[in-house]
Design a protein around this nucleic acid. Structure first.
Lengths: 335, 335
DNA sequence: TTGTAAGCGTTATCAT
DNA sequence: ATGATAACGCTTACAA
């Protein structure tokens, strides 16, 4: 408990607390000499503004919250990291909460943040939560909302998402250009909008290249490593010479199956993943992947939130482009 | 701004705000029927306690801070994740700050948190900061401190660190058991206490096995991938048949050199890293590594901080054991 | 340009 | 078991 208050400074200088408050807050109606004296004395006494009292009085708070499924997933931690940098510069501190993909924890986090009276919340919802009703309920009271990555429609505020359609489109086009003829897909569950958008991009790329869609080589299970291994087997059996995968881990599974079977990658089988996880550049052959640019998502989300809080917008829908990172797993000459 | 206050509840019930406050705070001197009525009415009106006002009056705050070099490094994000779970259960929210390995940012983070009047701070300092003086200065005023991973001596509060000596000792012993005879080391710069402790563990294991230390195969550069590649070359040239590395990326560099030269791993050259990064299990051959158990570090740090804040201790020094994860890169029979 | 004074919503300390 | 009242430290009309 630093005991120094503006009253102490005022007393030491023979002026009133209001003047001290104004001087410190940068109010222009303060004589320069007074401001100097106040700042000088504040430093001398080791004064630190009591943010709590300040917040209570002004009704504003300089904290915002971010809610993510899991902090330690690199996609989310990169988003947090970038958002923190933006907010820090704007004088806001960032409170993080994780839901562990759990609706109850998500509701609890929303209530906690709303209780702290944060100015805004950035949220990527848990897979377990099916509609945005609980969010709607929790963010009454002027708290601004920015949804990113996984978003519900029909909620107030702004959204920031990847351009998933184009990402999948250019990925599939990349495979076609490299000469692959029969390209299967690991799409992930299409009940999630994001996965659906990617699937649409995949289909459009095939269509534009005059390749008919074959639903028997589209695998819609969860994009985990094990499913990649199993579906990689099925895809090869069905004559695929390449896979577009909506995740890196499922792509890895397919790669492992190919290696186990002595199928040559990229010569006989091309593999392309999504997320550009660290390991994609470290394994052999290294894996072509779609970079989602999470830092840009974090930056844009934070900036969008500041704009909402400053009243500069009522809501905007931003997208972040993806970037194709070509590596060895699709590196064969047109043919 | 939820406009409902305890005054509204009091008025609606014909009692005073003090009673409402007590009822809600769980004060035992409140008739059960009154408490019920208050809770009922609070829910009915959609009351939410104003944490800011509560903090101001009580002088306590239910937030703590954590300062790390980089949020998106999986070691740190796992620590944060685990700490958040502990604190959340105890009713505290966690404010994160990152220093980007930068002393100025570290000082700024300390000031921000101290300004918010957090109850405590968990800190792993930036490499750029050489002494703990700036920390000492910033955390006056009863703010509790827990240092983890990278710690300064001579500061108040508690510390949580890995048992680096034993980790390196058992790693080196593992290599010896597997029959490797001439084991080089990538130690990292010994000015950092952590690296020094590991080096000591390495030396002790050699000593216990009767193997003389050969300083010409101890490489003390920064443990990055490039140095691993270069020093891997030197180590092989000097007749090493194994490497103990204080980092996974430098170990990876050595592995890449070996593969490039057609040196067989693990048959002719054993490689062991530290940190158990994700990629170690995904590359081929998979890499033996020392798991540092970051989630346990985070859990212990948060618990230690709570104990400090509750006044249950004045400071403690906790260690977290490391775990050897044997994989293919050292998997040869005693020979 | 500075002072005065009234709170922000809660909780602690009396008293009843 | 409850009420009355002051106070936490700051900001902000309004007055001077």
């Amino acid at each position: 408990m630093t005991k120094v208050t503006i009253i102490d400074i005022a007393r030491a200088l023979g002026i009133t607390p209001s003047t001290v408050s104004r001087a410190l807050a940068g109010n222009p109606y303060v004589k320069e000499s007074t401001r100097e004296a106040v700042k000088q004395k504040a430093k001398e006494l080791g004064y630190e503004r009591n943010v709590i009292a300040s917040n209570l009085r002004s009704g504003r708070t300089h904290a915002v919250g971010i809610i993510v499924p899991r902090i330690h997933r690199s996609f989310f931690s990169s988003i947090i990291s970038a958002a923190e940098e933006v907010l820090d510069k704007a004088g806001y501190s960032l409170i993080i909460c994780q839901t562990r993909e759990n609706l109850q924890d998500e509701i609890r986090a929303l209530n906690t943040l709303s209780g702290i009276r944060v100015g805004g919340i950035m949220l990527s919802h848990a897979i377990g939560s099916k509609s945005g009703k609980h969010i709607q309920e929790a963010i009454h009271g002027g708290i601004k909302l920015v949804q990113f990555d996984r978003v519900f429609e029909g909620l107030p505020g702004s959204t920031v998402t990847n351009d998933d359609f184009n990402g999948a489109y250019s990925a599939t086009k990349h495979l076609i250009k490299r000469g692959y003829k029969r390209i299967g897909a690991f799409t992930g569950p299409l009940s999630t909008k994001m996965f659906l958008n990617r699937y649409e991009g995949y289909k459009k790329a095939l269509e534009d290249a005059g390749i008919p869609l074959d639903e028997t080589i589209v695998f819609k299970d969860s994009i985990i490593r094990e499913n990649g291994y199993l579906n990689g087997a099925k895809a090869l059996e069905k004559g695929c010479d390449a896979i577009y995968s909506s995740g890196d881990y499922s792509a890895l599974g397919a790669l492992e199956f190919a290696k186990d079977q002595g199928v040559r990658v990229p010569e006989d089988f091309g593999i392309l993943g999504t997320a550009n996880e660290d390991f994609t550049s470290l394994i052999s052959p290294s894996m072509t992947s779609i970079e989602q640019n999470p830092r840009e998502i974090g930056t844009k989300a934070a900036q969008a939130l500041l704009r909402l809080m400053y009243g500069e917008t009522a809501g905007e829908h931003l997208t972040v482009e993806t970037t194709l990172i070509p590596r060895e797993s699709t590196d064969r000459k047109n043919g």
